[in-house]
């Protein structure tokens, strides 16, 4: 199963095995990783699942859709690495993915 590393803003790491097909947000919520609220449950409606994808993985996670990009435009502390984790599907190609969490989702 692909492994994903979530790094909290404090630096604390969580390494989680996520089945392909789930989203990066769902895997975090299922394992109670603090720092991803995901209020809308993955409907791309709340922007509270914001993560920073590590540079090395940017190409593999692909580009944000225009819908996602418009949501990100209004999130806090957005960088070129910002994504909504509910819009990234886990696959074998993402085995080893590292994402960092923002200070706050609100």
């Amino acid at each position: 199963m692909p492994k994903i590393t979530y790094i909290e803003h404090s630096g604390k790491e969580h390494v989680i095995e996520a089945p392909a097909g789930q989203t990066v947000m769902e895997a975090a919520v299922k394992h109670a990783v603090p720092g991803i609220d995901a209020d809308c449950g993955g409907a791309c409606a709340c922007a509270t699942c914001h993560v920073y994808v590590d540079d090395a993985w940017l190409a593999k996670t692909g580009e944000a859709s225009s819908m996602e990009q418009s949501m990100l435009d209004f999130a806090n502390d957005v960088t070129d690495n910002s994504r909504l984790s509910c819009q990234i599907k886990v696959s074998d190609a993402l085995d080893g993915l590292v994402v960092r969490l923002p200070k706050s989702q609100h």
Binding site: C44, A47, M67, S70, M71, D73, F74
Partner: peptide, 12 residues
């Protein structure tokens, strides 16, 4: 409708 920026902008 299919306008997330307007939604989030208005919400703010």
């Amino acid at each position: 409708v299919n306008r997330p920026g307007e939604y989030l902008g208005a919400k703010m």
